[in-house]
């Protein structure tokens, strides 16, 4: 039983993953809702965690695993308005998830029911990783870099040093390289001139498929910053933090992407 103040937030989260994964389970316990799923080619994995404090009201008195078709849940969420409140409920036996939208002024109520699926999901354990480089930058900047370089090549090499992070690609037509300096350029109050914040233990350079990175940038509306976690010979983690309407951190959406490696 979970009440979310702005249905649009859940819609943004689902829209940011629905093109990557077909089905997933929502694992619910008293602390929140967790999802983990891989894309069909096993190159990327998405996880999200929606903490209890994302919701106005939240209760879950026993652990539940709700099998969801992503296209179907996206269709239902599209029926609500983004500033509607949304109540999610399951009944007993647990074979449907109900969505009750209420308009902000209370003049419109709509209810939809999603048939749940019996999914046998394979769960992977994601090891705790000490990443060599953690790069924080504006979502819009990361999105632009990925889209720009994708017009030139298929994969992008991210190289992080103490002073800057560079993104480069090579394609048939030529090459492209974008470099962002460590730190804030200009006024600290003006986030538009924020370049990149780099926490580094050791420089790293890894290559990734731009097709997947572009999928990940669909989460850009969740947060104004994205955090890239990189380590030698480990998958890239692209993290978007999720905030509630009181601007408190209330979960995350994380994408993992396997690197491209030398033959």
């Amino acid at each position: 039983n979970a009440l979310i103040k702005q249905a649009g937030l859940l819609k943004k989260i689902i829209d940011a993953i629905k093109d990557l994964i077909d089905e997933a389970t929502l694992d619910c316990d008293n602390d929140g809702i967790y999802l983990q799923a891989m894309d069909s080619s096993h190159v990327s994995l998405v996880t999200f965690y929606l903490k209890k404090n994302l919701f106005e009201k939240y209760s879950c008195n026993r652990n539940l695993s709700l099998g969801i078709n992503m296209t179907s849940i996206a269709k239902i969420l599209k029926c609500g308005m983004s500033d509607d409140t949304l109540l999610l409920e399951t009944n007993n036996p647990i074979d449907i998830l109900s969505f009750k939208f209420e308009s902000r002024r209370g003049h419109k109520l709509s209810q939809f029911q999603l048939r749940l699926m019996n999914l046998e999901m394979e769960r992977l354990s994601i090891p705790d990783t000490e990443y060599s480089c953690i790069i924080e930058m504006m979502c819009s900047e990361f999105s632009k870099v990925c889209h720009d370089l994708a017009t030139i090549g298929d994969s992008m090499t991210i190289t992080c040093t103490k002073k800057n992070v560079t993104f480069d690609t090579t394609g048939d037509l030529g090459t492209g390289i974008v470099s962002l300096k460590q730190g804030v350029v200009g006024s600290e109050n003006d986030e538009n001139v924020y370049a990149a914040s780099i926490k580094i233990v050791k420089p790293v350079s890894l290559s990734f498929s731009l097709r997947y990175l572009i999928y990940f940038t669909k989460a850009s509306s969740l947060s104004n910053k994205v955090i890239l976690h990189m380590g030698e010979e480990v998958p890239l983690m692209v993290e978007y933090k999720i905030f509630n309407t009181y601007e408190e951190e209330a979960g995350y959406l994380r994408y993992f992407l396997a690197p491209k490696v030398n033959e």
């Binding site: 891989m38 080619s41 096993h42 190159v43 990327s44 994995l45 394979e122 769960r123 992977l124 354990s125 994601i126 090891p127 994969s155 290559s207 498929s209 480990v234 998958p235 993992f256 396997a258 690197p259 491209k260 490696v261 030398n262 033959e263």
Partner: peptide
């Protein structure tokens, strides 16, 4: 040339 690795070589089944 580089080839795309898969996540199952990094993350094991839980």
């Amino acid at each position: 040339p580089k080839h795309q690795s898969t996540l199952t070589s990094f993350f094991k089944k839980a």
